[in-house]
């Protein structure tokens, strides 16, 4: 029930933001119909749960995302400088690390954070191990240090 209410709220907010009209009965009616239809389909597909709509995450994400953005900017500058340098100073490596998250959603956030950071790309996942392709020695060391892994584990936190 909580999840259904959350889904309705989010869908309604998206509709209102994209349409931008709050005073046209026709558009509001179409919006209500669309929201009802999507909620109906989602319930039928049984995807309205803590995985399809992780309402437990935003509190943790609010603390995690700023750190992630800073990491992404640092990694971007590093990789960009390497690409334009004449000698192309890269040393690709493939490493396997353990993802210490409890839930699948947590592991997805971790794997996607790694991919989002230039210099490291998740190329394979099996169970709780993920395989990462790193462009440089430093990028590989960064993943091996496990800082991001612990922070993502904190995001899913108290569940």
């Amino acid at each position: 029930m909580t999840y259904t209410a959350g889904l309705v709220t989010i869908l309604a907010a998206v509709w209102l933001l994209l349409s931008g009209y709050l005073d046209k009965p026709l558009l509001l009616g179409l919006g209500a119909a669309s929201v009802a239809f999507v909620v109906f389909i989602s319930l039928r597909m049984r995807i309205v749960d803590d995985e399809g709509l992780p309402i437990q995450l935003p509190a943790g994400l609010a603390r995690y995302l700023p750190w992630l953005v800073v990491e992404i900017v640092k990694a971007n500058v590093d990789v960009a400088l390497r690409i334009v340098r004449p000698g192309l100073p890269i040393r690709p490596r493939v490493i396997r690390v353990r993802a210490g998250q409890r839930t699948d959603v947590g592991r997805v956030i971790y794997a996607n954070s790694i991919t989002l950071t230039p210099g490291t790309v998740t190329i394979d996942t099996e169970g709780d191990h993920i395989t990462v392709h790193a462009l440089t020695e430093e990028a590989a060391e960064g993943v091996l240090a496990g800082d991001m892994d612990r922070r993502v584990a904190r995001v899913e936190g108290r569940g």
Binding site: I72, N76, A80, P92, P118, V121, L135
Partner: peptide, 28 residues
Amino acid sequence: FAVIGGIGIVRLPDFFCRIHGAGITDTL
């Protein structure tokens, strides 16, 4: 950053490295 990523996708030696070049244009 977008142009550097474009240079990267052309200049980097193999497919898995080129992914990082595309990553630059897509993120920053």
